[in-house]
Design a protein around this nucleic acid. Structure first.
Length: 602
RNA sequence: CGGGGCGUAGCGCAGUCCGGUAGCGCACCGCGUUUGGGACGCGGGGGCCGGCGGUUCGAGUCCGCCCGCCCCGACCA
């Protein structure tokens, strides 16, 4: 490609709203342009990188038996109603009506369409296992797009779906993806870790997320350096420090003026926060069939713990959670700041006039193991000492509700956990029969019985992957693309002075010869000063730069420079092509050395 | 959805407090000079100052409503 002909330009200054490195550099180097919040155009350079990423994904998917298909972006709503996700997913789903006023969905993922395909195509166990995948546009109307390509609304995803006759088959395909995904990221030069994760809106049994660790990440992960336990904070377990059980003492009401927070209460009574119980009120949307019911949730945690909303939502099977308003709290007779489960009878409350919302009382699993806690008295300015679960109150549910924190004990080995931030670049889910049951995707097994197809789904966002690679590989001058995903291999810079027609001709010839040798070249043939050309080359970040100038030609040579190194060196014109091949091969083998088997962690 | 910030030329910004015919740098076009780390001279083009409404003789500037974009949080893959 001749830069004089290229559609995109570089920018000297990044737009002011680009705050993350990858966003600013991709904009400045002319890779991406924004159309609206979370909606971007891939310009020619980005398009080439994306194609390379996607081809790596194709190779790895094909290697584990994947067959590429393309499913529609627009789906009839009926499919999503069959699985009830039409009712469970909120404003994140793009919905519209076609000209016949039929409800339609913009695909945010493709389980429904795959399951519909499977129930039509698959009749026999002889047709299983299968693995299909596509690289397709998704629309998820995220309430808050951010950081350039890291979190967007419209994006391209490689999504694959496994279909199996038995659970062993699913496990096999899941493990095949587990390694194939590491291969993909490693071949793209992106270091990642796999962590156990929440299944979220996908439903299903087990999930891992592939995390690129970076401070700009929006997920918090807990890692154990001792035993390699790793999990998203949303589901991370940890060893809770249970206090020794004591003989239950009689309840005692104490005046505790102006102690609306746990910290204030603990200080006022001179006790550790772990001797208190904390009340957290939320309103949960809980799907019941085709309707969603709002429920007031009264969650009780030990005072030194923090609520993990994902764990709470999972325990309640809630699709949405929000903090309750004070009026809602008051409606059950609790007093905000001094709320207590004591004296609130879970059985007597329900769909009554006093309580517009049905109530669910749920306690953290540490609470039944904690004796003589201080809890609210449901009266402003008063608390109760020696409150004991079971004796003084009970709950509808007991579950793990608390968020793991930095330094908490690893659930496996007890060593302190460490928190890091990460961006999720891929995920794998064991869906099981969540979709095939709902949509009647069955097959006839060997034994003549009709069974549900067992499914898995697996995704990698290509734009986010490109952004993470940009975030990882750059310096103060610009991007530094791994050779496997660089838009071109070589940046050929021609420094053509006034009286150097020969330089121009040599550069043109080298451009043609490099391409003839199968090397992809970006040729800076523009009428620009050397400074501009070198700065643009650094900004765009192709792996190898070759400079042709009168100065080097006088020695019969051209100048080579690797983008990731400082050194420059001269190579004779005759040897330029083979040296370029050699440099690229070296770069390729440096990356290939990182593509290694990764032990499976369940 | 809550909190904060910002919308003036392709990009970065000034001008808004205190109303009086819209500016700077880069980029862009033409001519000439220049060519190893963001050159120089001369001459040019480009703006419904986010939108609508109001106040005023007069609004980029004051008032109201709306929209868009960014950041933090909630949420989410």
């Amino acid at each position: 490609m001749r830069m004089s002909q290229m559609f995109s330009q570089t920018l000297r200054e990044a737009p002011g709203d680009a705050e993350t490195t990858s966003h600013a550099l991709l904009l400045r180097a002319g890779f991406i342009r924004q159309l609206a919040a979370g909606i971007f155009t891939a310009m020619p350079l980005a398009r080439r990188t994306l194609t390379r990423l996607e081809n790596i994904m194709r190779e790895e998917m094909n290697a584990i038996g994947g067959q590429e298909i393309t499913m529609p972006v627009v789906h009839p709503a009926e499919l999503w109603q069959e699985t009830e996700r039409w009712y469970q997913i909120g404003s994140e789903m793009g919905r519209f009506k076609d000209k016949n006023l039929r409800d339609m969905v913009l695909g945010m993922t493709h389980e429904e369409v795959v399951t519909d395909l499977a129930r039509k195509e698959i009749q026999s166990y002889r047709q299983l296992p299968r693995l299909i995948y596509q690289i397709q546009t998704k629309w998820r109307d995220d309430p808050r797009p951010r950081a350039g390509l890291i979190r967007v609304r419209e994006f391209t995803m490689k999504d694959s779906y496994s279909l199996d006759a038995d659970w062993e088959g699913l496990d096999k395909q899941y493990r095949a993806h587990y390694q194939a995904y590491f291969n993909i990221f490693h071949r793209c030069g992106l270091p990642v870790i796999a962590v156990k994760s929440d299944v979220g809106m996908m439903g299903g049994k087990l999930a891992h997320e592939y995390m690129y660790l970076t401070p700009i990440g929006e997920d918090t992960l807990l890692l154990c350096d001792a035993c390699s336990y790793s999990a998203n904070r949303q589901i991370a377990a940890f060893r809770k420090q249970a206090a020794p059980m004591e003989q239950p003492l009689p309840i005692e009401k104490v005046a505790t003026p102006e102690t609306k927070t746990i910290a204030a209460l603990a200080e006022f009574l001179s006790i550790p926060a772990s001797r208190t119980a904390k009340a957290v009120f939320m309103v949960a949307k809980v799907p019941e069939g085709q309707v969603t019911v709002d429920k007031l949730v009264f969650a009780v945690l030990r005072g030194d713990m923090e609520l993990n909303e994902t764990k709470l939502a999972n325990a309640l099977k809630a699709s949405e959670l929000r903090p309750a308003h004070d009026e809602e709290i008051a409606s059950i007779g609790a007093v905000p700041g001094y709320a207590s489960p004591v004296g609130i009878d879970p059985a007597s409350l329900g769909y009554s006039d006093q309580t517009p919302l049905p109530l669910v009382i749920i306690v953290d699993d540490l609470i039944p193991q904690s004796s003589n806690l201080v809890a609210g008295a449901n009266e402003a300015g008063y608390h109760l000492r020696n409150v004991n679960y079971g004796r003084d109150y009970t709950a509808h549910l007991v579950a793990d509700l608390t968020a793991a924190r930095d330094g908490d004990g690893c659930p496996r080995c007890g060593s302190p956990l460490r928190t890091v931030r990460g961006v999720e670049v891929g995920n794998i889910f064991k869906l099981g029969t969540r979709y095939s049951d709902a949509m009647g995707a069955t097959f006839l097994d060997k034994d003549g019985k009709e069974k549900s197809i067992i499914m898995g789904s697996y995704g990698i966002g290509s734009g986010r992957l490109m952004a993470c690679i940009a975030e990882e590989h750059n310096d103060e001058n610009g991007l530094i693309w791994p050779v496997t995903v660089a838009p071109y291999h070589v940046h050929l810079v021609a420094l053509v002075g006034k009286d150097s027609e020969e330089t121009r001709q040599q550069a043109d010839k080298l451009y043609t010869d490099l391409q003839a040798a199968g090397i992809e070249v970006l040729f800076d043939d523009r009428d620009e000063s050397p400074g501009v050309k070198f700065n643009d080359a650094d900004l765009i970040g192709l792996p190898v730069r070759i400079t042709v100038s009168q100065r080097s030609l006088q020695q019969g040579s051209v100048e080579f420079k690797r983008r990731d190194r400082k050194e420059k060196f001269l190579v004779s014109l005759d040897a330029a092509i083979s040296r370029a091949q050699q440099e690229l091969d070296t770069l390729r083998s440096e990356i290939q050395a990182k593509v290694v088997p990764v032990p499976y962690e369940d």
